[in-house]
Amino acid sequence: MKAAVVTFPGSNCDRDLATAFEKMGFQVTRVWHKDSALPEGTDVVGLPGGFSFGDYLRCGAIAAQSPIAAAVQAHAARGGYVLGICNGFQVLTEMRLLPGALMRNAGLKFLCKTVTLKVATQDSPFTNAIPKGAEIQIPIAHHDGNYTIDAEGLKALQDQDRIAFTYAQNPNGATADIAGVLSANRRVLGMMPHPERVIEPEQGGTDGRGLFASLISGMALA
């Protein structure tokens, strides 16, 4: 399984995501935002957390215009997997690969804590190895994680079972407690919490493993 982790200027969870992929058995290549192509044979693209371009203008907006963005779009259009975490989720919404937008937290403060997530669907390559309804403990660390979508868009997500994770206790005001959403083909996942931070017991938990394990087994089947 080949993962490509993109670094934008201001990304700061790129190494963490690459390390998590590696620990879970992926072969990882690091990609620079000025590159115009992904490595040959990339299965999954990882868009990491951080503050790409300083989060100036609007979180993820400038990164979505990077040279690599076109290659990521093409990869997704071909049915490739894309995982965007935190700032990566913001980038995916700015690229219109995922609907909605991430607004400032309702409390207006940056928030770093471990939260309980509910796995809202098992029907995705990112969650197929985690029981539906399972509760997992995953850290969040964001200032702009308040997922916002209009009623029509929300209905579509619900009707199509595209909400991947919800917060057990909403920390940021997100619409319908949404922590992560899937694309229509279910192969693009954006989420605010950081599964890459809970891979090994010393990190305080291992609930992040299920997502990567799902991806490996899902891709093996595909």
């Binding site: 700061n12 957390g49 403060k109 770093c112 804590k113 660390a141 950081h194 931070r197």
Partner: peptide, 18 residues
């Protein structure tokens, strides 16, 4: 917590005591 929850304590994924 009001203070330290405003700080990212886990970026770099090597924090083992928060």
């Amino acid at each position: 917590a009001w203070v330290y929850e405003q700080y990212d304590a886990q970026v770099l994924a090597d924090t083992i005591r928060k």
